[in-house]
Computed example of a mutant assay.
Amino acid sequence: MSQKRVLITGAAGFLGSHLCDRFLAEGYFVIGMDNFITGDSKNLAHLSSNSSFLFIQHDVTNFINIEGDLDYILHFASPASPIDYLKIPIQTLKVGSLGTHNLLGLAKAKEARLLIASTSEVYGDPLVHPQTEDYYGNVNTIGPRGVYDEAKRFQESITMAYHRFHGLETRIVRIFNTYGPRMRLNDGRVIPAFMGQALRGEDLTVFGDGIQTRSFCYVTDQVEGIYRLLLSDYANPVNIGNPHEITIKDFAEEIISLTGTTQKVIYKDLPVDDPMQRQPDITLAKNLLGWEPKVGRAEGMKKTYDYFKNLTEAELHKSEHKDFSNYNK
Rank of each mutant, 00 (worst) to 15 (best):
M1Y: 06
K4E: 11
I8S: 01
A11G: 01
F14D: 10
L15G: 09
L15M: 15
F23Q: 11
L24Q: 08
G27D: 08
Y28F: 15
V30E: 11
I31W: 02
G32M: 02
D40T: 04
N43Y: 12
H46M: 10
H46V: 05
S49K: 09
S51G: 00
S51E: 03
F55E: 03
H58E: 05
H58V: 06
V60L: 09
I64P: 12
I66H: 09
H75P: 10
H75C: 08
P79Y: 01
S81V: 04
P82H: 11
P82S: 10
L86S: 11
K87Q: 14
I88P: 00
P89R: 03
Q91D: 11
Q91A: 07
L98V: 07
H101M: 03
N102K: 00
N102E: 00
L103D: 06
G105L: 04
K108S: 12
L114Q: 01
E121K: 08
V128L: 08
D134R: 06
D149H: 11
K152L: 07
K152A: 08
I158Q: 13
M160R: 04
R164T: 12
R164H: 12
R164N: 14
H166N: 14
R171C: 15
R174Y: 10
N177I: 08
N177F: 13
G180S: 11
P181K: 15
R182C: 03
E202A: 08
D203K: 14
T205N: 04
V206I: 15
G208D: 06
T213S: 14
T213D: 06
C217W: 10
Y218A: 06
T220R: 04
D221S: 09
D221N: 07
V223P: 06
G225H: 07
L230N: 07
D233V: 04
A235I: 03
G241A: 03
I248E: 13
K249W: 07
K249H: 12
E253I: 11
T259M: 07
T259L: 09
T259K: 09
T262E: 14
K268M: 07
K268Y: 06
V272L: 09
M276T: 13
Q277G: 05
Q279V: 14
I282V: 12
L289I: 10
W291N: 01
K294H: 02
G296N: 09
K303Y: 04
T304G: 03
N310Y: 04
E315Y: 14
H317D: 07
K318I: 01
S319V: 15
E320T: 14
N326E: 08
K329D: 00
